[in-house]
Write a protein that binds this DNA or RNA. Structure first.
Lengths: 160, 160
DNA sequence: ATTAATGCAAAATCTTTGCACTTTC
DNA sequence: GAAAGTGCAAAGATTTTGCATTAAT
């Protein structure tokens, strides 16, 4: 795909330095935050809901309570480590790529994936109303399976 | 602003024909649906949450229970009379303009308003993955008050 | 009459919060 | 040891659902 801001936190081969990352953002390095950061930033861009991350943490033997996962994700979003996306009414999806980019949303599976940076131009030419400035631009391209095609294939090809 | 799809349902001066509208979409013309349709389509484009609409209905002496408002809005969304927007995590905003257009979201006030159709070009040049087709494109430009400016002004100028 | 819609209250979700306990610095 | 974070359970908020009642064709 393309070089995302996420790679700022991870270089192939090198061990993931969660402690350094957290301290760079003025955050205390607690066990839970280190574990969640490793899952979030340890390997490429990710799109996760709070409970999905909690499950992963459970599976990876670095559990954190759901409340803590919410606290940590909200905190990370505040300092700019992740970005919250309101794609489907219910759950908030947290994206480790914090740059202004666009998303495909698969209506059948609920999967979310990045669209290349060429879509950055979306924001070009938009003028904010007087007294305001653009905080960020969210573009979601919603996809549905074409006619009767087996949509599941694309899900695996593109990942979540 | 611009000619929106919403005007399809309302022509200045003429009485609002809710019954005709509902029947055109194969929906039964119940008292509640007629009342809600009048509020939604009676005067220009609107961006409303379910409970805001319920409150309006209450005030306009054509009350409908919140459950019914949800049912009706979801039904209207299904048949294409309105479109649901997931802008902020919590509430779903229903937009009476069902065309692919873009929105300003005012982070301070929570207000939502349309951006002109020039933003339709956003969807141009995007190719759906194999087996999928684009269902719709949601573009939300999030705005924050510039420095210390009195942001409230813009809220009134632009409406909700 | 038949069929569908409404309203209420209860349930389901997702998220936040209060507070005692634990951890980090 | 002081300050901050965590976990639990409870509370909030939004949306959906089951079912008896009411309304529309």
């Amino acid at each position: 795909m393309y070089e995302s801001k996420g790679t700022e936190f991870h270089h192939a081969g090198e061990p993931f330095k969660g402690r350094a990352l957290l301290e760079r953002y003025g955050l205390r390095a607690t066990r839970q935050r280190l574990g969640l950061a490793k899952l979030l930033f340890g390997k490429g861009d990710r799109h996760l809901t709070a409970d999905a991350l909690a499950s992963e943490a459970q599976a990876a033997r670095m559990p954190a309570s759901l409340a803590t996962v919410y606290n940590v994700l909200n905190l990370f979003a505040q300092v700019g480590l992740v970005r919250g996306l309101a794609i489907e009414g219910g759950k908030t999806v947290f994206d480790t790529n914090t740059s202004n980019h666009s998303h495909f949303f698969f209506e059948d599976s609920g999967a979310v994936c990045d669209i290349g940076p060429d879509c950055a131009r979306f924001a070009e030419g938009i003028e904010a109303p007087e007294g305001y400035e653009i905080s960020k631009v969210d573009v979601v391209v919603r996809l549905r399976p074409k006619n009767g095609g087996p949509a599941v294939v694309a899900r695996h090809r593109l990942g979540v």
